[in-house]
């Protein structure tokens, strides 16, 4: 029998659809961290994102048979489930999230003593610039740049066609670039 870590995502999800738990566990291992980090960018709370991702994986396990190669990559399918679950969570708990679970949860885990003051400032600038982007542009850019999804995969997550996704990405990059140029003239960024 072929080792699970040598199998492709589609082969693993096919096995998971046939109730093979070990195959699904391999998928969990492959994508758990990136999915939790992706969700945390929205919820600003690891504990909330862990719950969201756990529920999303449970949903993926139950509906493994609905994920076929024709519908896109398994990675984009998982990201789509987590993205939708995160958006639902934010709609339901808007108030609690905005109150500041972020201050309780993330900074202590995010702090890195090796970072210089300049790096910290750069990071702060980037976080702020990213937060100022419209939600879909931010999501598209994050999936494309940070999570390594292709334009086709990003379009599958956001329910758009590839052309629309491509222009969304172009606008997001242009906005960031313009902001960087404006702020560098003021001496306040990278």
């Amino acid at each position: 029998m072929k080792k699970l870590n040598l199998l492709s995502d589609h082969q693993l999800i096919e096995r998971a659809a046939k109730n093979e738990q070990a195959a699904f566990a391999e998928l969990v291992q492959r994508y758990l961290a990136s999915l939790v980090k992706f969700s945390t960018r929205y919820t600003l709370s690891f504990s909330c994102s862990e719950d969201i991702v756990q529920e999303a994986f449970l949903r993926a396990w139950r509906n493994a048979s609905s994920c076929s190669a024709s519908k896109g990559s398994v990675k984009s399918w998982l990201f789509k489930i987590v993205y939708n679950a995160t958006i639902d969570f934010l709609r339901k708990n808007k108030r609690e999230v905005s109150i500041g679970s972020s201050e309780l949860d993330i900074p202590c885990e995010k702090q890195n003593p090796d970072k210089t003051l300049l790096q910290a400032q750069q990071q702060q600038w980037f976080d702020q610039a990213l937060a100022e982007l419209p939600e879909r542009q931010r999501t598209a850019l994050c999936l494309f740049m940070n999570n390594g999804l292709s334009v086709i995969d990003v379009s599958a997550v956001l329910d758009l066609n590839p052309e629309a996704t491509s222009s969304l990405l172009a606008r997001a990059k242009r906005s960031l670039k313009n902001k960087r140029q404006q702020d560098s003239q003021l001496g306040a960024c990278l």
Binding site: A33, E109, K110, N112, L130, L190
Partner: peptide, 14 residues
């Protein structure tokens, strides 16, 4: 540059 920014701003999960 963007990738570096994303990587450095990514929440660190244990």
């Amino acid at each position: 540059m963007l990738k570096e920014c994303f990587a450095s701003s990514e929440p660190q999960w244990s």
